[in-house]
């Protein structure tokens, strides 16, 4: 860990302003990812802005019947919320499939969206990694890639996004609300929030410098049956090999997002009309542009099988 300075802020605008004032600073919320990365010197902020005391830990109904989730609400509280459990079960299930009880107590909504990849080469500072040190190369592409991306990857990076929560948010068409140092509020649909690696895998979202997430807004409940199947080698406390979040509607249509396959939760709304044709047809279309490695090609079939199980359960 490198030495850093620290301050605590009290309003979102103050937070964004503090960040603008201190180049090289980072926001600190639950710290479950950032502090680990700082200890390994993968993240080396010179200044931490502790936003933990901001009044952003509430969950409220919006005027249109949706839900506004504070950026700092803990994953535990979000998963336990009555409205979430009733109307957005996919979200509650995804949250509970992630991490451990202790981590969920600390982890926040915004922090979960912004957590960084678990690619082992990203974590080992002796190894080249374009995400950690731009331009240093990627050891993962020719290395151990079983856990890594099968689609949307580039020659610079094949890391995946590790979040379960974000997969559910993607299926739910969540909108991310931010504020910048000038106090300007911005709404970013989650489908536009994450960037694919391309040549700049170190830039992971469309957030501007010093822009702060204040809340995540869910649209009104869409009904349907909600599923979240996270597939992994052990039963708990592991990142997904793949995860499939699905909301199935009576008319046969569905909202389907997939985790563990790309640098962002993977969803293609334009093909969701083929859901009624079955898991195989849908998966083929979803992964038409996949570029898996030899080690992780199985993930595509695994998504298909997981989805098939979900569709079977949905129909029965």
């Amino acid at each position: 860990m490198k030495s850093f300075t620290y301050e605590r802020v009290h309003t979102p605008a103050e937070a964004a302003a503090a960040a603008a004032r201190m180049p090289g600073s980072k926001f600190l919320a639950g710290g479950t990812n950032l502090l680990d990365l700082m200890k390994l010197q993968i993240e080396t902020p010179v200044h931490l802005i502790d936003i933990g005391k901001l009044e952003l830990n509430k969950i409220e109904h919006t005027l249109t019947g949706g839900l506004r989730i504070g950026a700092l609400l803990s994953n535990t509280d979000l998963a336990a919320d009555l409205s979430v459990r009733r109307d957005y079960q996919i979200l509650a299930r995804a949250l509970l499939a992630g991490a451990s009880g202790q981590l969920r107590n600390k982890a926040t909504t915004a922090g979960n969206l912004l957590q960084r990849t678990r690619c082992p080469y990203f974590y080992d500072t002796n190894q080249p990694c374009n995400k950690r040190v731009p331009g240093s190369g990627c050891a993962a592409i020719t290395g151990f890639s079983r856990q890594l991306a099968v689609i949307g990857s580039s020659n610079a990076c094949i890391a995946t996004h590790p979040s379960d929560m974000a997969v559910a948010m993607m299926a739910l068409d969540a909108v991310i609300e931010t504020i910048n140092p000038k106090g300007k509020v911005r709404l970013i649909p989650i489908a536009d929030f994450y960037r694919l690696p391309g040549k700049t895998p170190h830039i992971e979202t469309v957030l501007e410098k010093n822009e702060l997430i204040t809340s995540v807004v869910l649209p009104p409940p869409s009904g349907g049956m909600h599923f979240y199947h996270k597939v992994r080698d052990r039963s708990s406390y592991a990142f997904a090999l793949v995860s499939v979040g699905a909301i199935l509607h009576k008319d046969g249509s569905g909202q389907i997002a997939v985790g563990g396959v790309a640098a962002k939760p993977w969803r293609n709304k334009s093909i969701e009309k083929v859901v009624p044709l079955g898991a195989k047809a849908f998966t083929e279309k979803l992964f038409a542009k996949a570029r898996p490695t030899q080690e992780n090609a199985f993930k595509i079939q695994l998504v298909e099988r997981a989805l098939e199980g979900i569709l079977k359960e949905g129909r029965s």
Partner: peptide
């Protein structure tokens, strides 16, 4: 898991090297 190019065990922490959890 051995990275045969770089010569090391890649999954060298308890996130990467999985042992059973209670649920298993």
């Amino acid at each position: 898991v051995v990275d045969k190019n770089r010569g090391f065990f890649v999954n060298h922490d308890l996130a990467g090297y999985e042992v059973p959890v209670h649920a298993d």
